[in-house]
């Protein structure tokens, strides 16, 4: 589904991502963990073409994405839930969700809206409230729900647990799991390594722009190096 080879991203003279390889197969839930400033978000942004890459190849469903703008990638089935949610604060929940279906012209948007509401009943309760009045967790749910409205094949989630209460984090992760079971391929970037590794099938560990470890999430969860560096042992 997603294949990243030798990806390099520079911000001015600073290399944020230094040639990483990464792949996500269809139906997988893969997580990318690492400390602050490791280059996780930059990697996601490069995949979504929100920042330009300096080198490397990114393939989506087998096709190279070179030269494609972010809005064209959305039409090819890629959806990004940005860090900090990016909810449209002055639009209602419903309008936010409808905005997610912006590029679609089929007649099934209403149906998908119902599906999202079924998955996240809280959003249905608050459908006429503006995005800005929701709690942090609800906003995260809204951002995820909105991305589903584009009918993604590959969903990129950037730190969905950021700034949320533990109970809310649990809920958000349950929702992510439900989405994955529904057949959407997911690449999840997280700082909360424990939760992410428990949820994911496979994982990559990123450190100062490079991928240092990769493998089965369960195995990484018991890996001594990971435990020391990210799980606080």
């Amino acid at each position: 589904m997603l294949e990243v080879r030798g990806l390099e991203v520079h911000y001015g003279g600073i290399a944020a991502v230094k040639g990483i390889d990464l792949q996500v197969s269809k139906g997988e839930l893969v997580c990318l963990i690492g400390a602050n400033g490791a280059g996780k978000t930059t990697t996601l942004k490069a995949i979504a073409a929100l920042v330009p890459r300096s080198r490397g190849d990114i393939r989506l469903g087998g096709d190279s994405t070179a030269g494609l703008a972010s809005f064209e990638l959305v039409r090819r089935g890629l959806a990004l839930v940005p860090e900090g949610r990016g909810v449209f604060g002055r639009l209602t929940v419903r309008e936010n969700l409808e905005m997610g279906a912006y590029h679609r012209s089929d007649g099934e948007v209403g149906q998908d809206l119902e599906k999202v509401f079924a998955l996240m009943p809280r959003l249905h309760e608050r459908r006429n409230q503006t995005g800005g009045t929701l709690s942090g967790g609800e906003q995260q749910m809204l951002a995820i729900g909105r991305s589903l409205m584009s009918r993604p094949k590959l969903l990129l989630l950037d730190e969905p647990s950021m700034g949320l209460a533990p109970l809310m984090v649990q809920k958000v992760f349950e929702t992510i799991q439900a989405i994955a079971r529904g057949g959407v391929t997911i690449l999840l970037v997280e700082q909360n390594a424990k939760l992410a590794l428990e949820l994911a099938g496979r994982a990559y560990v990123m450190e100062s722009g490079c991928i240092t470890l990769a493998g089965d999430a369960g195995a990484l969860l018991t890996d001594q190096r990971v435990r020391e560096a990210y799980l606080g042992e």
């Binding site: 972010s70 809005f71 990016g86 905005m99 912006y102």
Partner: peptide, 25 residues
């Protein structure tokens, strides 16, 4: 219109608007 909704999305959050598949440029 679609264009009007895209303008509103850009006004509210440009990065999110791009992530929605809007050709912001």
């Amino acid at each position: 219109s679609r264009i009007g909704r895209a303008w509103v999305a850009i006004r509210e959050d440009e990065v999110a608007a791009r992530a929605m598949g809007i050709n912001t440029r």
